[in-house]
Each structure stands twice: as structure tokens, then as C-alpha cells.
């Protein structure tokens, strides 16, 4: 049951792109995801190992198609629900409009 994160020695990912721009985060939400994770682990809402486990349980196609902090966000949402901190129905639907009464976005164009 080895998962997709365990890539050491795998072939096929192509050459390394060594480009870097020196920025820590490429959007504000990435920084907030980073801070949320730090705060939740410090608060012992979950452990670093549980966080890694949550990322590693993403489906392989999802893992590979997601950016670094997108994986973190997925893991955070899952852990927040699992630990009873938020109700699953309260989370923003992926690709949809803000939750609330009334019709929701159809989720068209939900890219992975």
C-alpha cells in the first residue's frame, strides 16, 4: 500500500526545473494555510505525523495535480473534520460558491 508521495527512486518526473523566485508564498491563502497548520499543530489539534498521513492519503491523481499548499489545504480540511473542529457541511465546497441557503454553483469547471 505504498502511496504516491513515496517517490524516491521513481522515474518519469523529468528533469528538475531549478528556477526559483525567492518568494516564500505565491498567494496570501498559501501563507494563511501555512500559519493555520502551524497553529493547529502547536495547539496539539493533531500531530505533524497525522498531517503528513493526511497528505499521503490524497488520491494519487489528486496529489500529483495539486500544488504544494493545495495539498496542505486538503489535509487541513480533512483533519479539521476528523478532529471534530468543524462540521463537514460547513466547509467551502471545492470549486463551488460560498455555502449557504439557496442554489449552489454547479461546480462546472472544477479542475483537478
Amino acid at each position: 500500500m505504498t502511496r504516491i508521495h513515496d517517490v524516491g527512486g521513481m522515474e518519469g518526473f523529468g528533469p528538475v526545473d531549478p528556477t526559483e523566485d525567492g518568494r516564500a508564498f505565491h498567494a496570501d491563502w498559501e501563507a494563511r494555510v501555512f500559519a493555520l497548520n502551524t497553529a493547529l499543530i502547536r495547539r496539539q489539534a493533531y500531530t505533524l505525523d497525522e498531517f503528513r498521513d493526511a497528505i499521503e492519503h490524497l488520491a494519487p491523481e489528486r496529489y500529483l495535480a495539486s500544488s504544494y499548499y493545495e495539498r496542505w489545504l486538503e489535509a487541513l480540511e480533512g483533519l479539521a473534520v476528523k478532529k471534530g473542529l468543524v462540521a463537514p457541511g460547513d466547509l467551502e465546497e471545492e470549486g463551488g460558491d460560498a455555502p449557504g441557503p439557496g442554489p449552489r454553483g454547479s461546480g462546472e469547471g472544477r479542475g483537478r
Binding site: 500500500m1 505504498t2 513515496d6 524516491g8 527512486g9 505525523d49 497525522e50 503528513r52 498521513d53 499521503e56
Partner: peptide, 12 residues
């Protein structure tokens, strides 16, 4: 090893 959960022994 090949556990279904997080482990630190990489496959390789």
C-alpha cells in the same frame, strides 16, 4: 514493510 498508514521507511 508495507503499512497502510504513514511510515518513514521509504519504499526504495
Amino acid at each position: 514493510l508495507d503499512p497502510p498508514h504513514h511510515t518513514r521507511a521509504p519504499r526504495y
